[in-house]
């Protein structure tokens, strides 16, 4: 600003930095500490340090490793569905018409309601006894049972998550499409390009940046998701849709095995750091530029 510094910015940052140390760093330290302990709420013995035993138990457990596999399946399939559908919806809405702002507001709706309510909506829609979808499918002789059939439960989860988050991808792509200079599209049209060629050669290359942003953010948030799946299937039937986050919460709240739960939390944190590495780098570049 000026040569002599007449302002002091640090003091305005102190409260927030304290908040992030207490609620961002201290929890990680606590979870690391607990992961080295044998600690069960209803055990005869109190908490004690046991070294790496929890991690050994974790790595040898088929149960926890399958939860990890299911989580990666959930993230991967959802990403493909939502990126594709989101781009399609963005292309559909990338035009002016009366009521376009109403449509965009409705599109935001799944993002503004509680994730637990998203789960409740889909539970009511897909349950065999209350749901519209199973009732309509039964007219065609198709049974749809999210409580009994593993495939149906997965379909339900993918449908629900697509409903919940595709709007965000669509709005990101829409923002990207809006920023494509109209002159580029116009000159391509003059050169005789058809609608498809304009999309493939003019619009799509311009969407690369926002596409990467959408992909990375969605990947991270998919990995974080808990509420809506917990509400819809609770990991069932059996444990067939038990994702890592659901497993952690079950260990913490129902089994109250804090030591192994902390080890699994740490493992989940490690996975999210790996999965979010691309996003972190991108944001870092953006902040530092």
């Amino acid at each position: 600003m000026s040569e002599t510094r007449i302002y002091d910015g640090e003091k305005y940052l102190v409260p927030s930095v304290i908040a992030f140390i207490v609620f961002g760093i201290v929890p990680v330290v606590l979870v690391i500490r607990t992961s080295f302990m044998y600690w069960e709420a209803f055990a005869a013995t109190g908490p004690r340090f046991i070294g790496l035993d929890n991690f050994e138990q974790l790595m040898n457990s088929a149960q926890y490793m399958s939860a990890t596999g299911r989580t990666l399946l959930f993230v991967g399939v959802s990403l493909v569905i939502q990126m594709g559908l989101g781009l399609a919806i963005a292309l559909l809405l990338d035009r002016e018409f009366r009521g376009d702002s109403v449509v965009r507001t409705l599109l935001v709706l799944p993002l503004t309601i509680p994730p637990i309510s998203v789960g409740a909506n889909w539970l009511l829609l897909l349950r065999t006894d209350t749901g519209l979808v199973p009732k309509m499918l039964s007219n065609f002789g198709i049974t749809f049972q999210i409580g009994e059939n593993t495939l149906d439960a997965w379909v339900a989860i993918f449908l629900m998550d697509a409903w919940h988050w595709t709007p965000l991808i669509a709005l990101i792509f829409l923002a990207g499409l809006t920023s494509v200079p109209p002159s580029l599209i116009e000159s391509a049209r003059i050169d005789g390009a058809n609608r498809w060629e304009i999309f493939w050669h003019v619009q799509l290359p311009q969407l690369k940046t926002v596409g990467v942003v959408a992909l990375l953010i969605r990947m991270m948030d998919l990995f974080r998701s808990f509420d809506d799946v917990w509400m819809l299937t609770s990991g069932g039937p059996g444990e067939d849709t038990m994702l890592l986050n659901l497993e952690i919460v079950r260990i913490m709240t129902q089994q109250t095995r804090y030591g192994i739960g902390a080890a699994l939390s740490l493992f989940a944190l490690y996975l999210i750091i790996i999965l979010s590495w691309g996003l972190v780098n991108m944001l870092h570049r953006e902040v530092l530029e």
Partner: peptide, 24 residues
Amino acid sequence: HIFFWILTNRMAPPAAFLLPMFLL
């Protein structure tokens, strides 16, 4: 760097933070 660090806090997965938040 502080700005970037603050931003990464948003990425915390709630399930993994459940126990430490309880203890805290």
